[in-house]
């Protein structure tokens, strides 16, 4: 098992157990407010939780938390930016051609990295937040409604982009969405989150 979440409990929810293989994309659904984001926050060790999360057999609690989060990262539904310029958030890649190519694959303006953050639309922020998370080449990618701010065309671009990224870099992906059709397209199986556990969705 690549990513293994074992009896994870937080707040008054859980226990949640599931596994995701390397290069697999699993869909996650559940009614609003059930705690999908909190589950992601628990997996990335942003909130205290019972149980344990393993990556390739190594427990989260045995890892340095900053290293854990660069391997097991999450792209929140609402992105945050702190520098004035978009490009300043991409330290590792700098202004590399690959990053610019990826921008275009997602339908972003090629010059977007030189823009001021204040100029970005919600959808642009969302796509750039994905690229920002990918610069660490995470082993586990937790996507929290990654296309909620996008139109159908750009949603399609993003689905294709993530699919290609998954084939190339083989991360384990958990994709939260309220759109069953989308989850059918992007994932092989879908988990449904309830107060007391996760269930295979049919």
């Amino acid at each position: 098992m690549y990513l293994f979440v074992e009896h994870l409990t937080f707040l008054d929810k859980g226990p949640y157990s599931f596994a995701v293989e390397k290069g697999e994309c699993v869909g996650l659904t559940g009614r609003s407010g059930i705690g999908k984001t909190q589950l992601f926050r628990a997996i990335t060790d942003l909130i205290p939780a019972g149980g344990e999360v393993f990556l390739e057999g190594i427990a989260c609690s045995a890892c340095n938390p900053t290293q854990w989060r660069s391997k097991v990262t999450m792209v929140p539904a609402d992105s945050h930016w702190w520098h004035d310029k978009v490009g300043d958030h991409f330290v590792e890649f700098g202004q590399s051609p690959l990053l610019r190519d990826n921008c275009e694959l997602l339908g972003l303006d090629a010059a977007v990295l030189d823009w001021q953050v204040s100029r970005l639309s919600t959808g642009e922020r969302q796509r750039l937040a994905l690229l920002r998370a990918l610069q660490m080449t995470p082993a586990v990618l937790l996507l929290d409604e990654p296309s909620s701010g996008l139109d159908a065309y750009h949603t399609g671009l993003m689905e294709v982009f993530i699919e290609q990224y998954r084939r190339l870099n083989k991360p384990a992906i958990v994709w939260v969405s309220h759109d069953p059709e989308q989850l059918k397209r992007v994932s092989a199986r879908v988990l449904r989150m309830e107060q007391n556990g996760l269930y295979q969705s049919t």
């Binding site: 926050r41 989060r69 990262t73 929140p76 930016w81 702190w82 998370a133």
Partner: peptide
Amino acid sequence: GRRGEVEQRLLLGQT
């Protein structure tokens, strides 16, 4: 007020 930003930075592997 800026916890979203701080947590985002933690998620990017910052201390």
